[in-house]
Simulated assay, not measured.
Amino acid sequence: MHQNNTGFSFPFAFIIILMGLTSCHQATESDTFWDEESSPSQIGLMAIDDLLSRDEIMRYETDFLSTVHYAEAIAGMGAIELAAVLGDTSRIYLLKERYQHILDDFDSLPADHVDANVIGVLPIEFYQWNGNEAYKKMGVTMADLQWDDPQPNGITNQTRYWIDDMFMIGIIQKKAYKVTGDTVYLNRAALQMNDYLEKLQRPNGLFYHGPDAPFFWGRGNGWMAAALAEMVTVIPEGNPHYTNIIESYTTMMESLLRYQANDGMWRQLIDNEDSWKESSGTAMFGYAIKVGEDEGILSDPRYTESYQKAWLALADKVNEYGRLTDICVGTGQSDNIQYYLDRPTVTGDLHGQAPLLWFAHQLLKSE
């Protein structure tokens, strides 16, 4: 049928009809460790529908940045990936409708901050769905602008040495590599990751929240775990940073096994048993471990048990609206341990919803 300029191949009015058709075409879930209530497809679809139900796009509105928030971008990415593996075309249409005005005005978005460029993952995901070359160009341009004026050692001038940076930088470079096949993007990500690892990783494989914040904050470490997991899926043995990145990843994963609670959760401060159990970090760690198993890097059965326990624990923390509970609020750096222990929790924050979607996608992708 005739395709209009929005990328839809038939009238949007048929989407609701399709909801009843395509949502039943799901990844096989035989011989799994979950039951119906903890199914990644069921929980994942609830999380997608929750995202679609939100009237407002999560945004930055600060004195240094005004754009779509990185948590919105990576939650949207996870939702598209999950809908795709489930064959749920109707929800992909609805997600495209949610982000259409962003795609229409993409050239006006800022591209001079580590948290701004990551929005490029959204058009790349839509390109992989409908083949629209304009969307591919949008995403790849964001990846290129991140290296518009690199530092003398070749890393991006957006470098801050914050532990969430490597996910924001790495994911857009990886996505650009995957859709272009151009190793310049892979090499950028590997160079940047190697630099961050050399400067930030501690001997036990974990990461302090900052030089003046000597604490292993859960979500901060989650960003690095997820970034390393993304990197190990694409880096070839011939890359000069391959050995360091693989060893850094496996060292971190081994350390995480040591600190996982019996119920499958990780804590707000990973190594502090007096701290409370936190959901966003747990989702990131479970995701990162599952990726390593799927890549053949983590073969010990302890890792299988670890991510399975993590998923089941998280499933118990998803409410009837598809929103994950016990997510730490945004957290700045502090040299006071009590600051971390006293941080409040929220339900449904996209910092937790995003990795919940990635984790669900990874579980179903490998079935």
Results as ranks from 00 to 15, higher is better:
Ala134Val: 12
Leu364Asp: 12
Ser334Trp: 08
Asp49Gly: 07
Ile289Lys: 04
Asn4Tyr: 04
Leu257Ile: 15
Gln353Met: 03
Asp35Cys: 12
Thr325Pro: 00
Leu82Cys: 07
Tyr177Gln: 09
Gly296His: 07
Thr347Pro: 00
Phe215Arg: 02
Asn153Thr: 15
Ile270His: 04
Ser279Thr: 05
Asp300Pro: 03
Gly78Tyr: 02
Val68Asn: 10
Ile80Asn: 00
Met77Ala: 03
Tyr177Asn: 08
Glu81Met: 04
Arg188Ala: 04
Ala190Phe: 02
Ala226Met: 15
Leu206Phe: 13
Thr22Ser: 14
Ser41Trp: 03
Val184Trp: 00
His113Cys: 14
Leu206Glu: 06
Gly210Thr: 02
Asn117Ala: 09
Leu95Val: 05
Thr282Gly: 11
Ala71Met: 12
Ala73Thr: 08
Leu357Lys: 06
Asp326Ser: 06
Thr282Asn: 05
Lys317Trp: 01
Pro240Ala: 03
Val184Glu: 01
Gly218Trp: 00
Tyr99Val: 15
Lys309Ile: 00
Asp144Glu: 05
Asp105Ser: 15
Lys137Ser: 13
Ile48Ser: 02
Ala313Lys: 08
Gly131Val: 06
Leu191Val: 12
Leu82Asp: 04
Ile124His: 00
Ser334Asn: 09
Met77Lys: 13
Leu86Pro: 01
Trp311Ile: 03
Ile245His: 05
Gly154Gln: 13
Asn221His: 10
Gln353His: 06
Ile337Pro: 09
Trp129Phe: 02
Asp195Met: 06
Ile163Tyr: 11
Leu298Gln: 12
Leu324Val: 04
Ile171Glu: 09
Pro236His: 07
Phe64Ala: 14
Arg343Gln: 04
Ala13Gly: 05
Glu133Gln: 15
Ala226Ile: 10
Trp223Cys: 06
Glu37Thr: 14
Asp148Pro: 06
Asp164Lys: 02
Asn194Glu: 10
Leu21Asp: 01
Gly264Ala: 06
Tyr161Leu: 11
Ile119Asp: 00
Thr325Gly: 02
Ser108Ile: 13
Thr62Asn: 07
Tyr177Met: 11
Tyr339Gly: 14
Thr62Met: 12
Pro152Phe: 15
Gln128Arg: 12
Ile327Gln: 11
Leu257Ser: 14
Met193Pro: 06
Asp148Leu: 14
Ile119Val: 09
Asp164Ala: 01
Arg54Ser: 07
Phe285Asn: 03
Leu298Phe: 14
Asp349Ala: 04
Ser248Ile: 14
Ser90Arg: 03
Phe167Pro: 10
Gln128Pro: 07
Met224Ile: 12
Leu109Ile: 12
Val329Ala: 04
Ile74Met: 07
Val140Thr: 08
Met1Pro: 03
Gly181Ile: 07
His2Glu: 00
Gly330Arg: 13
Asp149Cys: 14
Phe126Pro: 09
Leu314His: 06
Asp49Met: 11
Pro344Gln: 02
Met58Asp: 05
